[in-house]
Amino acid sequence: MLSDANVAAVWLTLKLATITTVILLIVGTPLAWWLARTPSKWKGVVGAVVALPLVLPPTVLGFYLLITLGPHGPIGQLTQFLGWGVLPFTFAGLVVASVFYSMPFVVQPLQQAFEAVGARPLEVAATLRASPWDAFFTVVLPLAKPGFITAAILGFAHTVGEFGVVLMIGGNIPERTRVVSVQIYDHVEALEYAEAHVLAGGMLLFSFLVLLALYSRKRTSAWK
C-alpha cells in the first residue's frame, strides 16, 4: 500500500520527531525550570522568545534560520570552521530548525508543571538532607511527570506536523529532508491523489489519536 518513497518519508519523519523531542526534553527542562523559578527581569524576554514560533509564520522562522545557518551566517561560519559544513538542506539542519520550531510546545507544559509543583517540595527535601540535584530527581521529576508526558507528546506531534520550516531550510531531498508533509505536497502537485490520500489520511489519524490520548488522560495525577 505504501510506496518505497512514502515509507522513506514516514521513516524520516519519525526519526526527525524522535530526535527533536529527545533534544527538546534535554534542553527544555533546564530552560523551563529557570522560567518557572527565576525572579529575573529577563524572564519575560526569554519567555516571549521561546513562544515566538507559536505566532510567526514558519517561513519567517525558516528564512532567518536559513540566513543564520547558511554559508555566510554566523552559525554557518562556525559549523564550517569546525569542519561540519553547512546545515541547510541536511537532516541535521532539519533537526536544528525543528528544535526551535517545536520549543514552546515542550517548554510551556514543563514550565507549568514546575510552577504547579512549587518551591515547597524542594524545601521539604532540603530539610530531609537532599541536595538540590537529589531533590530535583527524586521529588520534582516524579511530581512533574504528567507535564513531561504532555511536553513529549506535543513536541513529537508538532514536529511531525511541520511543513513550512522544512521547505525553507531542508528543501525536498528524498531520504534526507523529504518528510511526510512535504511528500504529500509533492503528490498533490503531481496529481497523485491516491498516494496523497494514504499519507494525508495517516497523518489525520495519527494526529487525532495523539490528541485523543492527550485529552483523555485522567486529570488525576500520575502517581496514584
Binding site: 524545601e123 527535601a125 530539610t127 511530581l143 495525577s221
Partner: peptide, 28 residues
C-alpha cells in the same frame, strides 16, 4: 539547609504525595 542536622515540620501537610508513608519516612 540540606547540610544542617535539623528536622522541620511545616504548617501544612508536606508529605511527598508520590511516596508511601514508609518511603516518606525513609527519604530523610
Amino acid at each position: 539547609t540540606h547540610r544542617r542536622p535539623l528536622g522541620y515540620v511545616f504548617q501544612e501537610a508536606s508529605l511527598f504525595p508520590h511516596l508511601s508513608v514508609r518511603r516518606n519516612l525513609d527519604y530523610g
